[in-house]
Design a protein around this nucleic acid. Sequence first.
DNA 1: ATACTTGCAAAACATTTGCAGTGAG
DNA 2: CTCACTGCAAATGTTTTGCAAGTAT
Lengths: 147, 147
Amino acid sequence: MERTTRQKTAIQAAIESAQRPLSAQEILVQASLQVTQLGIATVYRNLKSLVLEEKVHVVTLPGENPRYESNTAANHHHHHFQCTTCQRVFDVHDCPGDLKRMAPQGFVVERHELTLYGRCADCNAVAGATGAVATAVHACASGHDPA
Amino acid sequence: MERTTRQKTAIQAAIESAQRPLSAQEILVQASLQVTQLGIATVYRNLKSLVLEEKVHVVTLPGENPRYESNTAANHHHHHFQCTTCQRVFDVHDCPGDLKRMAPQGFVVERHELTLYGRCADCNAVAGATGAVATAVHACASGHDPA
DNA sequence: ATACTTGCAAAACATTTGCAGTGAG
DNA sequence: CTCACTGCAAATGTTTTGCAAGTAT
């Protein structure tokens, strides 16, 4: 059965306190602050468990390594928006909903993933005001409050 | 400048004649039928070119290697459906469309990717009729004609 | 005590790159 | 004849696995 270890706790905490999806490496760095000597293999093993337990889910964007995001009650079904200018990833809490009828005859839709691409508010505002990009990057994919 | 080689031609042909997105390995196998001695590095190098030239585009599904799909005029904007039972990937030519308003204030949507998950027609039909799975797999993700 | 977990190092994969030889123009 | 392209092998980067030691329960 499942055991509670310092490393699992630290890994889970790292993911939950982040305001954005983290990569395995980022989780290692963050959780290492709590548990020195933490190994990357342990991070991967625990991520696998957490995903199975549905406490965490995976965010996969084309050409990038998987990111892991907390899956708490507060964090219900949502999608993602990646800015094509600054590459940051934002949560989009809206959802088109009625996708069941999109599938071909005889197909049953159980779940869907949607990713939007475009320019985020910051990059739009900045468009032209050269030099402000670096500033925008600091806010990296944190708690925006979409529609 | 660009040169026309037997290998590039074979790779492009393999992708265009496939009725579904192919992995680099599958492309290697297929194109090797035309050009013996073809190396995987050449496949990757050419895929990169073809994607840049926008003759091919990449289909990325969570937890799986990228697949490559022809990008001809006939092959317009579409999405994908992955069967959670047989893992096959199908094209879905329908599209929810009006996703622009999903983005938060100030965000501009330029593009979107949508993937549906569920059970394909074959797996639904089979559900219960044990043994038919192997048969279904043969039709692997080919020309279904969605809605 | 028992047996699940860990950390390390090696393995397994997918993809990229260096380089000398090949072939398209 | 040139120089882009190829094939091979080695390098890279990420994720997985084997195994002995550590530690929750």
